[in-house]
Amino acid sequence: MQAHNTQLPEHIRNAFHASDDQPQRLGACWDYGWKVGSVVFAQAPSPNRAVWSARVREKLEVEQLRISQPIRSTDSRFINAGWRATTFLEGEPAARADEVVAAALRLDSALQHVALSDALRDVDASDPFSVADHAAWSRDPAAAVMALFGKGAGDRGFEATQRRTRRSMAMRMVDQLAPRLVELDVDVQVCHADMLATTVFQGTQVPGVCDIVGVARPYGYSAALAAFDSMVMQASGEAIVHRFAHVEHFAQMVARAAIYRLVLHGIHPEAKSNSSSKLEQACTSLIRGGLPQ
């Protein structure tokens, strides 16, 4: 998550040979970056992940998808003073859940050919997204989540109270989801951990993908996570899980995606308590109608 009030420095524009056009603030799918001409500038809080994404997108070709291409600075780097640049794709996010899920499957097919790095396989204790992902895919997610949520349990103050409320809801949902889980003995590959939030649509053009957030999970997880996120955003219901049941282990991956979002909701410092109700509602719908008993 970016600081939304950060201005675009002039030396960054010059480093990536930006035009003289007036900067235009963009939304969440572009990390609240700045559009200058056909280039989007955004801060890179995790330079290593940003460089990885740039290297993958630079060579990636996906059937029926537009992929935002990284732009190198004058000294051929992808990151300059904490900023990155990418090509702008026309379009806006849309409540077209099934199309995003189908696009995610095409993306996963292309990402099968990308080598898995140790950075994607290993947990990064300093990164809440990595911590949440590994907790959700652990052998005993309920125990892993309980251990994570136990940290800071004695803290006081308004923010601590809000955090405990979020964690209480998340733990309750995890306890209901965990008994439905089956350990999957399948190969992992590079997947995209934020497909719904980074996909844009423009008229009759094919969908566009603004960025790729790497994660090492089974084929189809990009789609499963997009499906659950669409439930949270109320762009679909639990029936989406059944519509894509032809994808192997799809329901199980959606359940893991739900736990991932629950853990992140409990541990991310910028998580908002007002989103708890939608997250809880999506999990309840998934438990009642989207998962086998």
Rank of each mutant, 00 (worst) to 15 (best):
V263K: 01
P23S: 10
F41W: 03
A258F: 07
S230M: 01
V186M: 08
V190M: 10
H113W: 05
G237H: 07
A147G: 05
V131N: 02
A216M: 06
V215L: 15
K278S: 15
R72G: 00
T86Q: 11
A239E: 15
A258D: 13
R167N: 12
L196W: 06
V254W: 02
I240E: 04
M169V: 12
I267Y: 09
P93S: 08
L120D: 14
A132E: 02
E183V: 13
K151C: 09
R166L: 07
R172I: 03
G37T: 05
Q205T: 12
H265T: 08
L177K: 04
V200Y: 04
D133Y: 12
D122W: 08
G152M: 05
V145C: 15
P47S: 04
I212G: 05
R164I: 05
D194V: 02
I287D: 09
V100K: 02
A102L: 03
L105F: 06
V215D: 08
Y32Q: 12
Q162K: 12
A170C: 11
L60Y: 01
K272L: 13
D187L: 14
A160C: 06
T284I: 12
V100E: 01
L279K: 10
F244Y: 10
F41P: 01
A193R: 09
V254P: 15
L225H: 14
R13H: 02
R243L: 06
F78I: 02
A178F: 03
A115P: 07
Y260P: 01
R256P: 13
I12V: 14
D175E: 12
C191T: 15
A178S: 15
P179Y: 10
Q189W: 04
R66V: 02
S53Y: 00
A18G: 12
Y32I: 08
V39P: 00
A226W: 08
G290C: 12
V213G: 15
H4L: 13
P93M: 04
A257L: 06
S236F: 01
K278W: 10
A3T: 09
N80W: 03
A44C: 13
S109N: 09
V123Y: 07
V190N: 11
R156A: 13
I267P: 08
V241A: 07
A85I: 09
L60G: 06
D31G: 14
A115G: 08
S276Y: 02
V36C: 03
S236Q: 05
R49K: 14
V190D: 10
F158W: 10
A257G: 13
V62M: 06
T199Y: 01
T199V: 10
Q7M: 10
R217M: 09
S38G: 11
S222T: 05
L111Q: 06
S76D: 15
L148T: 01
V114D: 07
A95L: 08
G37Y: 07
T74Y: 00
C191K: 05
S76A: 12
S76E: 15
M171Y: 07
G91W: 07
F88D: 02
R139C: 05
D21A: 14
L26Q: 10
A28P: 04
Q293M: 09
S117K: 06
S130Q: 02
R96P: 00
L148G: 04
F228L: 06
D75H: 07
A144F: 00
I67C: 07
Q2D: 11
P128M: 05
D124T: 00
